[in-house]
Nucleic acid binder design. Structure first.
Lengths: 123, 123
DNA sequence: GTCGTTGCAAAGCGTTTGCAGCCTA
DNA sequence: TAGGCTGCAAACGCTTTGCAACGAC
């Protein structure tokens, strides 16, 4: 990743402006507002490049296509709204992980996802 | 789902014998030991039918293809081994979920996945 | 001017579907 | 014997890749 193209700039901007994880399609649509002719392949290639550069992080939710967010945030988890399908960040962590890890297993990481209705959809 | 075929029996048996969640491919391979000519389409069709019947449950892990396990177990979560790629059940639940749910959000469910090395791979 | 990057179209890959024949009830 | 079920192959949707042209440095 060596050159700054208008396509790459549009993809970065879309992720920064969104403030929450975006899917490849959402990212493509959002980037098209800046660069109308941008191809989906370019979006995928830049996702890969920006991830290898450590600029973005992959957010994988169970049964969902991957989404992407700007890297460097504090440890956090996600809340997935079942109605509007948006993903929100939640602070904190339930902890107590060692207690549920079976004997002899080596714990390296964890993922934690909440489901329900976001504040807008619950209203 | 009205008839008991040898294919369906093989798929049920594979899930029961495994004791841990299986992916469609794993299920296909395992069922082939009983019915050598079984097609992958049949596996997918039976997964769907058995799920609609409530006989099996879908286990979705972040960034992983879905796996399936026999339904009716107690509330539990999963441990995903990064080396052998197997998925194990873990008892218990960290709890304390309300504490991390943002104000105004309605919590309906949660998923919780541990990553690391299983007891075999850690040795 | 170089060569990293792009858009397009084709190729992959896992999952689903259409269809004719099979086999359970 | 009826019609649910199966295997095969084609269709699908999403992601990746090959390639010639473009454009950032």
């Amino acid at each position: 990743m060596q050159r700054e193209t208008k396509q790459r700039r549009a993809i970065r901007k879309a992720l920064i402006d969104a403030g929450h994880p975006l899917s490849p399609q959402e990212l493509h649509e959002s980037a098209q507002e800046d660069v109308s002719g941008i191809g989906i392949a370019t979006v995928y290639r830049n996702i890969k490049a920006l991830h290898e550069d450590g600029w973005l992080e992959i957010v994988e939710l169970p049964g969902e296509p991957p989404r992407y967010e700007v890297a460097g945030k504090e440890h956090h988890h996600h809340f997935h709204c079942r109605r509007c399908d948006k993903v929100y960040e939640v602070e904190g962590c339930p902890g107590n992980l060692k207690a549920v890890t079976p004997e002899g297993f080596e714990l390296e990481g964890h993922e934690f996802v909440l489901y329900g209705l976001c504040v807008k959809c619950a209203a």
